[in-house]
Computed example of a mutant assay.
Amino acid sequence: MKTLLLPLLVTLGLVAGCASTRPSDADRLALYEAHAGAPVNQIRYVDPMGWDRIDDQHVVLMMRPNESWLLTLSGPCLGWSTGSPFLGLSSFNGMSLSRLDKVIVSGSQVSCLIQQIRPLDVKALRAAEGALRERAAAQPSGT
């Protein structure tokens, strides 16, 4: 029993240490907002690479490796309460995305109007995220 308990405690300690280095939603939002440009009315929307949920009202839309957009939504529709991280759009024009469009969570009746679209400086954002990870790795864990 003791031989099973020690690896379990070590694993739990590692998991707790990793969890404490993840930035909060508020910290992540501040980082993205610091690297976002002025709002635009619409963007070209063709074959997106994916989405990244920041909090219940903000999502990053990744179009290409060096093209991402910070979307601010009208309400808290990104709680993933449905268990599905898939997002869809009710776009009025399949080639563009504007403040008139809505984000829809698959399997949910909730949809949120896009209130704001801001371009992200992807290179600067990646550099800032890397610096944060290095700082977090250099800090001793709070165990």
Rank of each mutant, 00 (worst) to 15 (best):
H58N: 11
V46R: 15
S111Y: 01
Q115I: 01
A128V: 06
R53N: 11
L87H: 08
G107S: 08
V10T: 12
Q139N: 08
E129C: 04
P39D: 03
L71G: 04
W51R: 06
T143K: 11
S68G: 08
R99V: 02
V15K: 10
L113H: 01
V103N: 02
A16E: 08
V60S: 04
T3R: 15
L120E: 02
L9A: 15
G50N: 11
T82W: 06
E134G: 07
P119D: 04
Y45D: 10
S108Q: 10
C112P: 03
L5V: 14
D27C: 02
Q139W: 02
A124E: 13
L5I: 15
C77W: 00
A128Y: 01
R22P: 00
W51P: 00
S111P: 03
W51G: 00
A34W: 04
M63P: 05
C112N: 11
R44Y: 09
D56S: 11
L8A: 15
I104F: 03
L97C: 06
W51Q: 09
A128S: 07
Q139F: 01
G107M: 13
G37S: 07
G94K: 13
P65M: 07
R126N: 11
V60L: 08
T82R: 12
L89Q: 07
M63E: 07
A36E: 04
P85H: 15
A16C: 09
P119S: 12
Q57N: 10
R53I: 13
I114M: 00
L78Q: 07
R53S: 06
V105F: 00
Q139S: 05
A34E: 06
G17A: 12
G79Y: 00
L89V: 10
P65W: 05
L14M: 11
G13P: 02
L61G: 03
G83T: 12
G88R: 13
L29N: 02
H35C: 04
G37R: 05
P48S: 13
S74K: 03
P85A: 11
V60C: 02
S108F: 07
D56K: 09
S111Q: 14
V105T: 13
L14N: 07
L12V: 12
V10Y: 02
R28I: 07
L97D: 00
R44M: 09
R64Q: 15
K123R: 14
W80L: 15
C77Y: 04
